[in-house]
């Protein structure tokens, strides 16, 4: 048997194997949504009962866009209502006269957006699909798996982050511009699709942020160190 013919099938096997290393991957904007929560574990949330959600979503424009084109206010009312609904569902009561009766916790909602760029190329190999985002490939950050004849395009996309912060107004400030935070949720995703579809994703993610934070409920005795 010729030596070269005995080696080639083996290398063909290796090639086939390596090509199938990373099947699947992102197929929709929803799959890029991320919900991150964290809390001060020295706080016993069961001692709280009333809340207020500030009446505006603070838009933070990191790119100094004069027209604030990346962020729409179309979903602001939905966001604030959803946060309040989740607080009610957890057992909190909204303080209707916060000027005279200090609520136990105050929730601030902020939003920011940035533009990101990525190289995209369409592979003929069926299970790779669109390369996304930078570094999404075999060869490390900044390099996607590619072939010389593939069309390569640069795509820009907007990424939005919603930040929900829960604070205790009775606790002293830690310093200028710094206040103690009891709980924070970050909701991050690609701003793609219609206003209503983004609104649906925001609502789902806000619900998720509270679902994965059961310790927030004033009805649950949390096994944490009293403050």
């Amino acid at each position: 048997m010729e030596r070269k013919w005995s080696v080639l099938p083996a290398f063909a096997g290796v090639w086939l194997g390596i090509m199938s290393c990373y099947p699947g991957g992102v197929t929709s904007s929803e799959q890029l949504d991320l919900v991150i929560t964290s809390h001060d574990d020295t706080v016993t949330f069961s001692r709280f009962s009333t809340y207020v959600v500030l009446d505006s979503v603070v838009h933070i424009d990191l790119e100094d866009n004069a027209n604030d084109s990346l962020l729409s206010r179309d979903n602001d009312a939905l966001i604030l209502a959803r946060v309040a609904a989740n607080m009610e569902a957890m057992g909190y009561l909204e303080e209707m006269d916060p000027l005279n009766n200090t609520p136990d916790v105050v929730l601030l909602v902020g939003a920011l957006a940035v533009t990101k760029s990525a190289y995209a190329s369409y592979d003929w190999w069926p299970w790779y699909g669109w390369g996304y985002p930078p570094g999404w490939g075999c060869c490390g950050p900044g390099y996607g798996w590619g072939y010389p004849w593939q069309p390569v395009q640069t795509v820009s996309y907007a990424v939005g982050t919603l930040v929900i912060t829960m604070m205790d107004p009775s606790r002293p400030s830690l310093g200028f511009d710094t206040a103690p935070v009891l709980w924070v949720a970050g909701i991050n995703g690609v701003l793609a699709g219609s206003t209503s579809s983004i609104g649906t994703r925001l609502a789902t993610s806000i619900d998720q942020a509270f679902d994965q934070s059961p310790y927030l409920s004033p009805l649950v005795a949390t096994p944490t160190t009293p403050n």
Binding site: V26, I36, S213
Partner: peptide
């Protein structure tokens, strides 16, 4: 070469931070 993969939306906890999203694991 043994290639395993999975997709999950479970909540992961890392250093006191809970993270939820679609995880593509390999």
């Amino acid at each position: 070469l043994n290639a395993f993969n999975d997709v999950t939306t479970e909540v992961s906890s890392i250093d006191g931070v809970e993270i939820q999203g679609t995880q593509f694991r390999y």
